[in-house]
Design a protein around this nucleic acid. Sequence first.
RNA 1: GGUCCCAUCGUCUAGAGGCCUAGGACACCACCCUCUCAAGGUGGCGACACGGGUUCGAAUCCCGUUGGGACUGCCA
Length: 463
Amino acid sequence: MAPRTRFAPSPTGFLHVGGVRTALYNWLVARQAQGAFILRIEDTDAARNREEWVEGIFDSMRWIGLDWDELYRQSERGALYVDAAAKLEASGLAYWCDCAREAVDARAAARKGPPGYDGFCRERGLGPGEGRALRFRPPDEGATIVPDVIRGAPSFDHATLDDPVIVRSSGDPMFVLANVVDDLDMRITHVIRGEEHLPTTPKYLLLWDALGGGEHPTFAHVPVLVNEKRQKLSKRRDPVALEQYRDEGYLPEVMLNYLALLGWSSPDGEEKLTVEDMLANFRIEDVGNSPAFFDVAKLRAFNGDAIRALSSDEFIARAAPWLEAPHAPWEPEAFDAVAFARLAPLVQERVFRLAEVTAMVDFVFLEEAPVDEGSWIKAMKPHASALLDAVIAAYEICPWEAEHLKAALIEAGEGLELKLKVAQAPVRVAVTGRTVGPPLFESLEVMGREGVLTRLRDARGRL
RNA sequence: GGUCCCAUCGUCUAGAGGCCUAGGACACCACCCUCUCAAGGUGGCGACACGGGUUCGAAUCCCGUUGGGACUGCCA
């Protein structure tokens, strides 16, 4: 039977890199066996969901290349959940409860017991009504084991399960119910999700059976992604939004490659993988079982390697979005594609993220050099005046090609007993505003004699 | 507190009883190259959490300890 997998995000924020990884694993399992990958928006909590987040999820999924075969939104499937709830109630597996959160907490505190619902309404025989929620009643006896391809078969005693609310007093279904009903309805064969869902899986299975589900899906609870403090990556405190990485200029294929490696490795040990490589070698049962740190430094290194591996034309095409508003600081008409193309190969060697391209070439398109104060102080030593005078004189007549510009600067420096390494600094800062950047003489060549001389004279005047 | 999960270099991992003197990648350090910064090249530092077993032999199997994490919502 062809696998049917699903990625079921809740639209309560940006798409999270951890979510993208589980989406990728689901996608791989479906795609490598001609199965179906389903995108299901779990928006049963109307108070938290926002349409813009749903759009953001679609955008992010498309950007990174995870295409889906079927799309569902739980907010449009209410009737299914109502039916399931009625079925559970009719079979005596669910009951109505009117306990407020405060009352539940107060009772727990009073008996000095563990927090959680105590089953207060189990035998009260309440019917539906205002302020009443429907709770599912797991069995008191026995245990449920969860066969999991990456975790073995953890067992959960039914006695430790409390009675989860499956329908809110508003009438809307809760995650535990909608999730199971949909997996059943969509004939999901593999439930691949974060390990944070493991503790609720016994309830999932009990509900599945209560609803007459038949054969269980295969479970794979993948380890969570953690921050440097080894805590689960959180939208609140960690940089986890996929679109943030997109905006910084990480390549989508690199993002996917890096994410795949967090918990999984190719059998041949190769780390630089294409989607085709992953499709050929990925096995969900090979995913590791311990939490992985999302290491931006390694992601960045991979991204730099990938940028360098691009052809020059590809690089120019990929960088294009960062060369215009709102990323670029220069006036649109000041941009010169030919000039950029000449510098592009030199820039390509030096950036790790496409967003860095802008600062590498801005001096060419800006009216004045973007002066960096620290660079100015570092470069404009006492010898700078004499050096700039000599360079200006030489550049007024020197053939305008990198090699000649270099030779002229070497000569100007020799007159002052300055090595090229030292002599180039004032010129670089005068023209580009910074001590770091693409090779100087090629930069000067691209800028042209007039622009360069203007800046050199301007800098000389400010000394 | 309770339930469950996890444990190899700083990080991501390879490792399914002898192939391990524990391999790779990122990071870091040194040197080379060099007009800055990168890139590139060479070399280096660096781990089986601890304690018991089982076995001729354990990073690999079992138990315990310690440490970390997830969950414990009318969130998903």
